[in-house]
């Protein structure tokens, strides 16, 4: 079974009610995305950032995949779109965001000055975290306020939170 067929089968399983297979679907999807992007940009430093961005887009826009349609062309189209968007953004504003992850439990910040930690983050990431985790805005509200897409906002939060996690680990 090739990658495309595995993705089709996994999506059918997920839509058949086995939500547990969704993680495996996303893992296989990340391989497909990485293959597609690597063919276009090679082993670029931005490759993994882009893979993550496309994964978020695949997840956010999963309702645009019609039941029974092949998954791979759908993923490839999203990957290509995000790659073009990435090039456009880099052309206009060559800001390279830091890598990060946002799975940080609230108690990891216990006893720490969050404001000081946030000051050590790139402003875009710090702003994203302030809006979503301190002001309590939803991702959509925050992205609207900043004037960027929802996927970009999620990625900023994701990377900012991972950087915070690293900062916390360094202090311990």
């Amino acid at each position: 079974m090739n990658l495309g067929e595995r993705l089709d089968a996994l999506m059918a399983t997920v839509r058949g009610g086995k939500e547990a297979a969704y993680g495996q679907f996303l893992t296989e999807a990340s391989h497909a995305i990485r293959n597609t992007l690597a063919r276009r940009i090679g082993a670029d430093a931005d490759l993994e950032d882009l893979v993550q961005e496309v994964l978020i887009a695949v997840h956010d826009k999963r309702h645009t995949l019609d039941p029974g349609r092949p998954v791979l062309p759908w993923i490839n189209a999203i990957a290509k779109y995000k790659l073009i968007d990435h090039w456009r953004k880099k052309g206009r504003s060559p800001i390279v965001l830091e890598d990060a992850d946002d799975e940080v439990a609230a108690d990891e910040f216990a006893g720490m000055d969050v404001a000081v930690l946030l000051d050590q983050l790139p402003e875009a990431q710090a702003e994203a975290i302030r809006l979503t985790h301190i002001e309590g805005l939803t991702g959509a509200e925050a992205s609207e306020r900043v004037g960027i897409g929802l996927s970009a906002m999620k990625l900023r939060v994701h990377r900012g939170m991972l950087r915070l996690k690293e900062l916390v680990a360094e202090k311990e």
Binding site: G23, T27, S30, E48, V51, Q52, H59, E103, H158
Partner: peptide, 9 residues
Amino acid sequence: RTEELITRL
């Protein structure tokens, strides 16, 4: 980090 993102999604 990609794997952690997948877990979260």
